[in-house]
Design a protein around this nucleic acid. Structure first.
Lengths: 202, 202, 202, 202
DNA sequence: AATGAATGAGTGTTCATTCAT
DNA sequence: CATGAATGAACACTCATTCAT
């Protein structure tokens, strides 16, 4: 109701970053709604009320985590596309980058996967839909270029193809475990191989 | 908790089925934890306390919905496998059946997708992991047979391949809309085509 | 956020009336903001959460109390004006009625006096300003008629006169005590005598 | 609590006076309990904790504001009474002084009006009741003298008359606006005219 | 089969105050 | 003089659940 006015709510604080990391992990693990402000505070070793010295609300913590994640992902995706490689190579790199992101920041990815639908209708979270759309446009552009360049099949619907790829890649966060049997590189290469050539023996 | 049943909680009741359908839709839309017993009661036109005449708890409603869904899915999957077709054909049919299930019971699918991780650690819900495993074994068996029969590539990891397929198929529930641009048949065929031959032009 | 949907929130309940009376007294004594939901629940002998079975919010309790008070006061005022007596007589009766109201429902009067300014800017409480204005119009009309009829002095500003009278009358609630030295009739007659003839000996 | 003073909390500080003015206005506008220490600090451009360098507590700010107001008012009232004019003239001057005070320090007046009942039972605020009583004695003395001198009517109760006057005068703070249609002089004269001669045409 | 009243534990949030720096 | 981090108690409100009727 009253505007945010906390000096501590500035980006700079190290403590703030610590708390956000804790929140991110808990949100990712338990779900945003199921995580209580007391859970986060407990893990940080402070009282729940003290969190409000750093963040104006629980929702703000979610928002910050999502924004950081999406802006980083978009920036890295843009950088890949702007390198100017051939579409097929660009798509492969986007996919590899996605698996690398899952490996580097599984909590943020899981958070995004789990909460994006809840967050869609929440005021103040419009940026989620917007950044998601920006990223989507990037991918769709690459796929279209690849079709035009004769690299990709044209008998498949562009949007469906994009969604199949996107869903497969990001779903990985649900079962990929750090230090598991496969490195994120291996998982990426396996998926790329399947995507390129299909499952059938020829 | 789940085992106990009121007299009125017998399987036969039509009212009971009505209430479960309402609960299923709300759980699927809002999430289990975010749905209140009052949301359900409101839509049913009764008071929240009255739900306890039909179900012993909110969790019991979730359990029943999940059980019904998973048992049906397993039964249909077993039936497909038992037809004795060649593995490639069986796999295609399993995939088609999945898309058909998404089309026929999107709430149950979404419910399962959203709550399976929460439910994993909840006592009384062991059947979820068990039935999921049964279905997984079925799919893995088909894939292995296909490899042995020389129909599928053998340079891909079986488990990874299974997970890629499973995730892609079930994720569809997040964006597939009844009466949208594509019928569930069309979506299935597009995915099968991509899965069979890959994305690259040859 | 969700609409009111409580069957118990109907006007009819006796328990509801009891709770509202308790709330009214506490709001009047301590102030609305200083009264906690637990204060009210404690006096009613229930837990604080149980109040929400009867009222959707603390503000709703305030709103109901104010509405009941203002609508009753307006109705009684209209009835007095419509009797068609001469303005001087009507004004006297309005004043007597005000003192009677203070005597009969001191809590409601004090509540209104204390909270009307807070409530002025609160969404959902527009009716307070509206009913207050309706009552004001009634009084102003009577004073103007009395001036036109040659009963009241015309060298005094109408609006100031109204406010002087209104403030004096309602302020009484701050010190008038049931069973004190003066009955409300006596207080009314003393004020009327002062208002009619002034303070100076002639 | 109030007695204790930091070194910096000496009377002389200009910053202190600034802060107190801000607090006074906010207390008057929003109410003491509804004003947070942060509201005050925000307007002053410092952090809430820093206020405690100047004042030992929020209550102490209220206490200081009230004391300053009441002591000033009492002093000015005593000065008027001690001039030795005839009671009728003294009463008029007391009333004029009251309206002038409302004009000069509306925040302090509003503060006193709003918080005097809350403050009545608060330890450390006994001076409020005492100074109020001192002022009341002054007014009652003037009225009694006027009756004895044959200037005022004797058929009205002294205490009731005093309260009627006091309430009317101070209530003005609720609607009198600086730069409004009437100067405080005009309002005073209108009220004196009504009080002297009454409302009826003779 | 349903109501209506209540419980009790918990949820996000607020806020005066303290204190090391 | 002020900051920034924290406390601890309180607050309005939510919700699954119980139970007498």
């Amino acid at each position: 109701m009253r505007a945010q006015r906390n000096a501590a709510a500035q980006a700079g604080s190290a403590r703030r970053r610590e708390l956000l990391t804790i929140a991110e992990r808990q949100f990712a693990t338990r779900g945003f709604a199921q995580t209580t402000i007391r859970d986060i505070a407990d893990e940080a070793g402070i009282l729940s009320g003290s969190l409000y010295h750093h963040f104006p609300s629980k929702e703000a913590m979610l928002g910050e985590a999502l924004q950081e994640f999406l802006e980083g992902l978009l920036a890295r995706s843009v950088a890949i596309v702007e390198q100017g490689d051939r579409p097929r190579e660009v798509l492969d790199q986007l996919i590899r980058e996605s698996f690398a992101t899952i490996n580097a920041a599984p909590d943020a990815v899981a958070l995004y996967q789990n909460e994006k639908s809840f967050v869609a209708e929440t005021p103040g979270f419009e940026f989620v839909a917007k950044l998601s759309r920006d990223i989507e446009k990037l991918w769709l552009g690459v796929i279209k270029s690849g079709r035009a360049a004769g690299e990709f099949r044209t008998d498949l619907d562009v949007n469906l193809t994009y969604r199949f790829i996107r869903d497969t890649v990001w779903s990985t966060v649900g079962w990929y475990r750090l230090g598991g049997r496969f490195s994120h590189h291996a998982v990426a290469e396996q998926y790329l191989s399947l995507l390129h050539g299909g499952m059938l023996k020829n």
